[in-house]
């Protein structure tokens, strides 16, 4: 059964169509990548699917339920989890606490129990802590558990964010440039991690600039340019599509001239 269906999704900012009429679908355990030059609207698309922006048009269906424009916390409860291109870490909390917060839905109970530290509350917290430590091990951050998250390196923060997203045990995981700013070794680690997650049955929607990685792990690729879908299909097919090559290479040449920072200005 299809897990995620996106139909005719679009949004405007101040009259400019940032994303227009984009559609695709995703099955459990599948890795689908969204690629396109900077400013193509990839992150905006992510933000609409994950409820950060309310779409201006179109429909998002998650496991048969219409979840268009649903608030992120409600989507989380339906098994959708994500990471952010520009990192959204709880800076002043410890690394461990960051991941524990990912277990919120499982750990939460009555506020009174939390206030009075009743045994149930302590049991919940202990369970969350144990599972969080396991996840930290999985992303290789177990030794940084007690450190303040803000003090971690960029690459470590990327992995921390993935660990936090995994804590929700999502059915669908949206990863926004998980390997950006990581060195070759770190990229490979993340690469393996993603495949592992997918193998366990989680569907993954990926935005990534590292083409080698995208081509290797994706089952299906959706190409955006100027907010519109210009192609989609298997990696081998898409990479030979003349429109993709034109949009992509043309823009990449421009990007090189403008410098890498342009990536952060896109929405």
């Amino acid at each position: 059964m299809t897990l995620l269906t996106v139909e005719g999704l679009g949004i405007q900012f101040g009259g400019v169509k940032a994303v227009n009429d984009v559609g695709f679908s995703l099955n459990p355990g599948e890795i689908v990548s969204i690629i396109g030059p900077n400013g193509a609207g990839k992150t905006t698309l992510f933000n609409m699917i994950s409820g950060v922006y309310t779409p201006g048009a179109g429909k998002v269906t998650l496991a048969g339920e219409d979840v268009t424009g649903m608030a992120p916390f409600l989507l989380a409860r339906r098994g959708l989890s994500r990471t952010f291109q520009n990192l959204q870490i709880f800076q002043s909390m410890s690394v461990l606490e960051n991941v524990m917060s990912g277990f919120h839905l499982r750990e939460r109970g009555s506020v009174l129990a939390d206030l009075f530290a009743w045994p149930t509350a302590r049991r919940r917290a202990r369970a969350a802590e144990g599972d969080a430590r396991k996840l930290l091990e999985r992303v290789g951050l177990e030794r940084a558990a007690e450190r303040e998250a803000g003090s971690l390196s960029y690459g470590s923060l990327k992995r921390l964010e993935i660990a936090r997203a995994l804590a929700l045990d999502p059915r669908l995981l949206l990863l926004d440039e998980p390997a950006a700013g990581c060195n070759a070794v770190e990229t490979e680690e993340i690469d393996h991690l993603i495949e592992e997650i997918a193998k366990a049955g989680t569907a993954i929607l990926l935005v990534e600039h590292d083409m080698k990685m995208v081509m290797r792990i994706s089952k299906h690729i959706v190409v955006l340019d100027h907010g519109e879908k210009i192609a989609e299909g298997e990696p081998a097919v898409v990479s030979r599509d003349p429109r993709v090559i034109e949009a992509y290479l043309g823009a990449q040449a421009k990007d090189k001239a403008m410098g890498e920072e342009a990536g952060h200005a896109e929405h």
Binding site: G51, F73, S81, F90, S101, H104, L105, A167, L168
Partner: peptide
């Protein structure tokens, strides 16, 4: 307190 957006995505 750290990030309302991220808090939302973990289900808070």
């Amino acid at each position: 307190h750290g990030s309302e957006t991220a808090a939302g995505t973990v289900g808070i």
